[in-house]
């Protein structure tokens, strides 16, 4: 096998990996991306006479297929969120980005915790009128004598309620505020993490 054939085989294998990692994008977009990256690598390696070593260098300069594909996917996810910023779409975007980086996984964890707590506040506020004696913010005697606080529906009738009916307006306000802040946090995360992370190398004199 000639060096040129080896170069072509290396390029084809690299492009196949990029294509596989771009799963989820429209096929036409994947074809376009693959064609552009092939053209870049081909020219960077020296054109028609490129050998395997030159092609390996060109592909290394382009980056690892999965990482490169994640840049495209991140851009696409961020672009979709700019068109529809609903909390559901933002959470979907955060969920998809979470598989690409540890930072995005952290944003997902904080978002899930934020929405869960917001939901507890809101449900507590809404349920209070129906079960006034069992729903609220409770201080519960723990087994070891310490005190713990429980928000929501108390399973311990001996617990002491702390806020009474104030839990209704407070729960609605805090739950809504927490949900709003969690949404903004997720949106900022998608914008920051989804955008192309073009790394620049500063030339040293």
């Amino acid at each position: 096998m000639s060096g040129t054939d080896e170069a072509k085989r290396a390029l084809d294998a690299w492009i196949a990996e990029v294509r596989a990692a771009l799963k989820g994008l429209p096929p036409g977009d994947v074809d376009d991306i693959a064609r552009e990256l092939s053209s870049h690598a081909f020219e960077r390696a020296g054109g028609a006479g490129a050998d395997a070593v030159a092609m390996a260098g060109a592909l290394e300069a382009l980056g690892r297929p999965r990482e490169l594909a994640s840049l495209y996917l991140g851009e696409r996810i961020a672009e979709r969120v700019e068109r529809n910023r609903s909390p559901w779409q933002v959470m979907r975007a955060v969920w998809r980005l979470a598989g690409m980086s540890a930072d995005a996984a952290f944003v997902l964890a904080v978002s899930l915790a934020g929405y869960a707590l917001a939901l507890v506040f809101l449900l507590t506020a809404l349920a209070k009128p129906f079960w006034p004696d069992r729903v609220g913010l409770w201080r519960l005697p723990a087994a070891d004598g310490d005190l713990s606080v429980s928000l929501g529906r108390s399973l311990h009738p001996v617990g002491q309620e702390l806020l009474g009916w104030w839990i209704v307006p407070l729960g609605l306000v805090l739950g809504s505020a927490l949900a709003f802040l969690t949404w903004r946090f997720g949106l900022a995360g998608v914008r920051r993490l989804g955008r192309a992370r073009a790394e620049l190398n500063t030339p040293k004199g």
Binding site: L37, R44, A61, L68, E75, A196, A198, L200
Partner: peptide
């Protein structure tokens, strides 16, 4: 401009600017 951009990253950026 002495800007050395990682080669693969330029294309998603161009894609975004086109979008």
């Amino acid at each position: 401009a002495e800007l050395l951009v990682s080669e693969g990253a330029i294309y998603p950026l161009l894609n975004r600017l086109r979008g």
